[in-house]
Design a protein around this nucleic acid. Structure first.
Length: 899
RNA sequence: GGGCGGCUAGCUCAGUUGGUUAGAGCAACUGGUUUACACCCAGUAGGUCACAGGUUCGAGUCCUGUGUCGCCCACCA
């Protein structure tokens, strides 16, 4: 084998291996009934999206889970795909057209869609090229897009089915209207933002008692032309005698009634509320109850309409100020005060949404009860678990979903209206996927469906639902229910909850309600792993305007995909946001380099045996030293911990246990202690190194796929034409079985620890006697009773790099320290002791510490309460500790006396 | 207004059902290139576990309250 370079250079290996994996179809879906299946569906990014930090974490995690599943002997499938992103995509295309001076209305729907598709095909899919740099192992041959023909059929089928089943209806209701994108939005797309507004107190003159007024408080004077009443609480003494009278709506001067309604809060403002049913949900409900007229004063784009009189055409916010001024001028404004309130904003348009009465399609959610049950009964598990509460709370308060959007880009609603007939009468509707045969007599609904109405079908839509043949071909029956979903909690309602509902409704036969047993086969996934948000090191969200987001591809360039992946996982605390700091990715890169050098160390020794198979390697061992046994046992423990953490999605802990095993236990200790044997070419030692390296590479492969693939081949562990990712990674129990002939002894672990403690103690002693050059230092050990010299080997001297080590059976008057093995002295004969005082101080400090601990334990043991009530093992522990500490203290005191 | 989460070393985080002396990485400081690695090795220092009560033989861990930062939900205009 060629010698490796001194430093790992990611660039040289990454592209090479990714290409090899692709050309060998490594990521293809394989329907193999002899294996358990494992499936993840990518949360579809926007088709024209580019990779950002959030994707980086999210996809690293998914790739990790997929590759980990492969190593566990499963047939793993990761389905990639994109979302058509209705509003944002339409806005972008409109902007592109505007640059060319084109208004979408001029070119019409057909041409616009053609343009949009062209633009998508040109700019789409960039994100997947970027993800490939990260090493993700998706089934690229089966990319899905929500506007694909077959997927679209699924979307329309879902609409038609839900309509037939009575869940979809058309209604004239108050919706969230975005005056910028000119479409209705769902409740979930509205973000509440605290705003400093003005509360205007406006006098309405009483019709029946001229000269007297009732004062209302409002933040929205521009809607006064739409006022149809003033309402007070029926129990409000102040206004009791006014109910039933009328007052004069300001500006346009129309007499409107004063009514009473429970919904009015007495102690807000003046206790009198102006009622504008067209522009407020509460007002609308009151209006319905009292049979009031509805006067819409706004145009769709947020300007005042003809009802606005002289302010007609003015933007709602300008009109607010203008009307406020006018009210003041005509003496109807009592006062205005600053006021903090929450205003709903459109996420896309970033402007306040307008509650607007409009005719839309709504969905009453099916299977709500079942959707709650599958999570609360644990059929679907959330990680971290706390999200279940939030999920259940949402379902408890679920509102009908406004699914129609006044856009062109998306799935056009499959409803046709008979021409020249009453649209409001459902007798004149035709609802089907393919439309009526005599299309010329019908006109299709102009609107499209909310993008999420297609995304919520993702778990089965990607398998070709509802086409049974396509589903069979794509392995639906094998892979569904899928296993893990990795996503952010920000879309728990938008997407996660709705996917659960959709799957429960559409998978299997139509049924109004389901038993738990039936639900088991209908859930879309079994676990949901919620990731945190990536923030900058100051805890701020990453955003374009702040410019605090690094470019993911630059990071890959700088640290390597592997270094970035493992670095990111190391700093992502379970279930919490990630504070990203580029310096911390350095740790990931350094780890990769350490791994590289671990392999490099091994490769400096030739060996002629076959290394492609673990049982084979084990079979070649004829004798193991205690250190060898210990590292193999630690290897088993490491794999066990890794699996435990992975099962809980505690990824950082999973990374950390391999990191610690490899760096701390293997490199820092085992490599050093066995170095002289390796350099001598001792076969048993080499084999142990191979066993450990082999398993380390296997365990690490899901985290850092490129470097492990490279080293797997470089070290000669690869069978011909094979890749590491398809090797089975033995579980802890497998390893124990395979290691059985080696007769590994548990006590080797303790011995290794004792040796290590001993070495640490020696090192401390040496560092405290720096005047003695270590090469000429001599260590003398007085063994503690019961310990044997067998604990020692020449390796200890090598690790310590000292001149000599001797044993003594009596106490000596030399600088010393205590370890479990015994008292350690350093021979200072022939040198002057310069640091005696420092040494003395140090020992005094240690004795002080020990005395404190002794006092604590004595106190405990002397307390009758403690000895009476505490369990035996705790008491024994305390006693043992006390004895140990006393022994240590006494020994130190002897040393002190001898100095 | 309701709910959730965080608060542990300078920084970022671990800390299982309460039980021996609260840990790790990074940063800091000290020393070190013997042929895996300076993207390294050895070591040192650093903590009133946000605060106040309570339960307990024993609390970072459980209970109550407070503070603080951050999320989510909610129709007081």
């Amino acid at each position: 084998m060629n010698e490796l370079a001194k430093t790992f250079s990611p660039r040289e290996v990454e592209d090479k291996w990714y290409e090899a994996w692709l050309s060998n179809n490594c990521f293809d879906r394989v329907i193999d009934p002899s294996k358990p299946s494992f499936c993840i569906l990518i949360p579809p990014p926007n088709v024209t999206g580019v990779l950002h930090m959030g994707h980086l974490l999210n996809n690293t995690l998914q790739d990790l889970l997929i590759r980990y599943a492969r190593h566990s002997g499963k047939s793993a499938l990761w389905v990639p795909g994109t979302d058509h992103a209705g509003i944002s995509m339409q806005v972008r295309v409109e902007k592109e057209l505007a640059k060319k001076g084109i208004d979408k209305k001029d070119i019409g729907r057909e041409k616009f869609l053609k343009q949009a598709s062209l633009w998508r095909d040109e700019h789409g899919g960039i994100i997947f090229k970027q993800l490939q740099k990260l090493g993700v192992s998706c089934d690229w041959k089966n990319m899905k897009h929500t506007l694909d023909t077959d997927y679209s059929r699924g979307v329309l089928t879902a609409f038609v089915e839900l309509y037939k089943r009575g869940y979809i209806y058309r209604g004239r209701r108050m919706v969230n209207w975005c005056p910028v994108s000119l479409t209705a939005l769902s409740d979930e797309e509205v973000k509440m933002m605290p705003q400093t507004s003005k509360l205007y107190y406006v006098k309405y003159e009483l019709v029946e008692r001229p000269g007297e007024h009732i004062t209302v408080a409002t933040t929205r004077p521009e809607t006064i032309p739409g006022d149809v009443a003033v309402a007070v609480n029926p129990n409000d003494e102040r206004y009791k005698d006014l109910v039933g009278l009328h007052c004069m709506r300001p500006l346009s001067k129309v007499s409107i009634p004063i009514i009473s309604d429970e919904a009015v809060v007495k102690d807000f403002g003046t206790g009198a509320l102006k009622i504008t049913p067209a522009h407020d949900q509460v007002d609308f409900e009151i209006g319905q109850k009292h049979n009031l007229e509805i006067i819409d004063v706004l145009n769709p784009n947020g300007t005042l309409n003809e009802h606005g009189g002289e302010w007609c055409g003015m933007d709602r916010f300008d009109a607010r100020i203008a009307i406020g001024k006018r009210l003041k001028k005509i003496g109807l404004l009592v006062k205005e005060e600053e006021y903090e309130n929450n205003v709903g904003f459109s996420e896309r348009g970033n402007v306040p949404i307008e509650p607007k009465l409009s005719e839309q399609w709504f969905l009453r959610y099916p299977k709500v009860k079942e959707a709650k049950a599958v999570v609360s009964e644990g059929l679907i598990k959330f990680y971290p678990e706390r999200w279940t509460k939030i999920y259940l709370h949402w379902l408890d308060n679920i509102q009908d979903w406004c699914i129609s959007r006044q856009l062109w880009w998306g799935h056009r609603i499959p409803v046709w209206y008979r021409k020249n007939s009453d649209r409001s009468d459902s007798k004149n509707w035709h609802v089907s996927v393919d439309g009526p045969v005599d299309k010329e007599n019908w006109s299709q609904d102009e609107d499209v469906l909310d993008t999420w109405f297609s995304s919520w079908l993702w778990p089965f839509g990607v398998f070709g639902w509802p086409d049974r043949n396509k589903m069979a071909e794509s392995g639906f029956d094998y892979f569904f229910p899928t296993d893990d979903l990795v996503t952010g909690p920000d879309i728990i309602f938008f997407w996660v909850a709705r996917m659960i509902i959709a799957s429960l409704e559409f998978i299997g036969d139509e049924k109004a309600s389901l038993t738990l047993e039936e639900m088991k086969n209908r859930i879309p996934f079994q676990s949901v792993c919620f990731t945190g948000i990536i923030r900058d090191s100051l805890g701020r969200k990453m955003s374009k305007s702040l410019g605090n987001s690094p470019e993911p591809l630059d990071l890959i360039e700088k640290y390597g995909a592997d270094g970035l992946r493992i670095g990111l996982l190391l700093i992502a605390p379970y279930g919490q946001d990630v504070l990203f700091d580029e310096e911390r990715i350095v740790q990931g890169r350094n780890f990769c380099n350490k791994l590289w050098n671990g392999a490099r160390f091994r490769l400096m020794q030739q060996s002629n045996y076959d290394k492609t198979d673990l049982p084979g390697l084990i079979g070649k061992v004829d004798r193991l030293e205690s250190d060898d046994q210990a590292i193999l046992l630690q290897l088993v423990k490491c794999k066990q911990d890794l699996d435990t953490y992975m099962a809980k999605y505690e990824i950082t802990s999973a990374v950390q246990c391999i990191y610690n095993f490899f760096w701390n236990s293997y490199c820092d200790w085992y490599v050093e202690i066995s170095k002289h044997r390796v350099q001598r070419g001792e076969r048993n030692a080499l084999i142990v190194h191979d066993i450990v390296m082999r398993q380390v590479l296997l365990m690490l492969n899901p985290f850092i796929p490129f470097i492990t693939e490279e080293l797997w081949h470089a070290c000669g562990y690869a069978k011909e034409n094979s890749f590491i990712q398809y090797e089975y990674c033995e579980r802890a129990s497998d390893l124990m079985l395979l290691f059985e002939p080696l007769k590994l002894e548990e006590k080797s672990l303790l011995e290794a620890k004792q040796r290590r403690d001993f070495v640490n103690a020696c090192r401390l002693l040496l560092s405290q006697n720096k005047h003695i050059p270590s090469k000429s230092a001599k260590i003398i050990v007085k063994l503690r009773d019961g310990n044997s010299k067998k604990l020692f080997s020449e390796s200890l001297g090598n690790v310590l790099n000292i001149n000599a080590m001797e044993f003594s059976d009596r106490e000596l008057s030399l600088p010393a320290t205590i370890s479990d093995i015994g008292t350690i002295y350093i021979d200072t004969s022939g040198t002057s002791i310069a640091s005696l005082q420092t040494r003395r101080d140090k020992i005094l400090r240690e004795i002080g510490e020990l005395n404190k601990l002794i006092a604590i334990n004595e106190g405990k043991l002397n307390s009758a309460d403690f000895t009476k009530k505490a369990p035996k093992n705790v008491i024994d522990g305390a006693r043992r500790l006390l004895e140990n500490n006393i022994e240590k203290r006494d020994a130190l005191e002897k040393i002190l006396a001898s100095l």
